[in-house]
C-alpha cells in the first residue's frame, strides 16, 4: 500500500467535508477505486464507529485499521485530528465580526439547522429499522432520563442494551 496516497485520500475526504459521516461518499469512491476496501469493510467500519466511544467520525479510524492495519488506523487518526484545528482561524475571523448582529444571527441559524438536522437524520435511521413499540418506548424513556440529568448517558445506554437483550432474548 502507498501510505502517502492513503493519507492524502483520508485527509482530503476529512478536510472537504463536515460532520462524522461527511467523509463517507469521498472515501467510499476513492477506497473502492483503489481496491483498498470492500463494501463489507465499509459497513463494518460504520457499525464499529457507532458503538465505539468518542465522535462518530472515528469510523474512519476503524476503516483505516480494517484496510491498512495499525499504521492505517494511526494515519486515519492523524487525518481526522488536523483539519478541525482550522477552527482557530474561523474563531479569529469570528472575533472580528462578532460585533455585528448578522454574524451572531448567522451562527444561531447554523446551530438551529444542525440541531434539527441531527434529529432528522437519526430519526430517519431509526425509522428505517421499522421500530416496534418497545424501541419507541426505549427512545422516549432515554430522552426523559437524559433530560432529568439524574442518569449519565452511559447508564442510559447500558439500561437500554440490557432491556433489549431481555426483551428480545439472546
Amino acid at each position: 500500500m502507498n501510505w502517502l496516497l492513503f493519507f492524502v485520500i483520508l485527509f482530503k475526504a476529512v478536510i472537504l467535508s463536515t460532520g462524522g459521516f461527511g467523509p463517507l461518499p469521498m472515501l467510499h469512491a476513492d477506497f473502492i477505486e483503489q481496491a483498498w476496501a470492500t463494501e463489507k469493510q465499509f459497513a463494518e467500519a460504520l457499525a464499529i464507529g457507532q458503538i465505539a466511544p468518542g465522535p462518530n467520525g472515528l469510523w474512519v479510524v476503524s476503516l483505516g485499521k480494517l484496510t491498512g492495519g495499525f499504521y492505517g488506523a494511526v494515519l486515519a487518526g492523524i487525518a481526522l485530528v488536523l483539519p478541525p484545528f482550522l477552527v482557530l482561524i474561523t474563531k479569529h475571523f469570528y472575533q472580528k465580526l462578532s460585533k455585528y448582529p448578522a454574524t451572531n444571527g448567522f451562527l444561531a441559524g447554523v446551530v438551529l439547522v444542525v440541531s434539527s438536522f441531527s434529529i432528522l437524520v437519526l430519526g430517519d435511521i431509526f425509522l428505517q429499522d421499522s421500530p416496534d413499540v418497545f424501541l419507541v418506548l426505549v427512545c422516549l424513556f432515554s430522552a426523559a432520563l437524559a433530560a432529568s440529568r439524574k442518569c449519565s448517558a452511559n447508564r442510559i445506554l447500558v439500561f437500554s442494551i440490557v432491556a433489549g437483550i431481555l426483551f428480545y432474548g439472546a
Binding site: Q50, I51, L122, G123, I125, F126, D129, P131, L135, V136, V138, C139, L140, F141, S142, A143, A144, L145, A146, A153, I156, L157, F159, S160, I161, A163, G164, I165, F167, Y168
Partner: peptide
C-alpha cells in the same frame, strides 16, 4: 436498542 436510546439522548 442502544440506537433507540441514542436517539432519545
Amino acid at each position: 436498542t442502544a440506537f433507540a436510546a441514542i436517539l432519545g439522548i
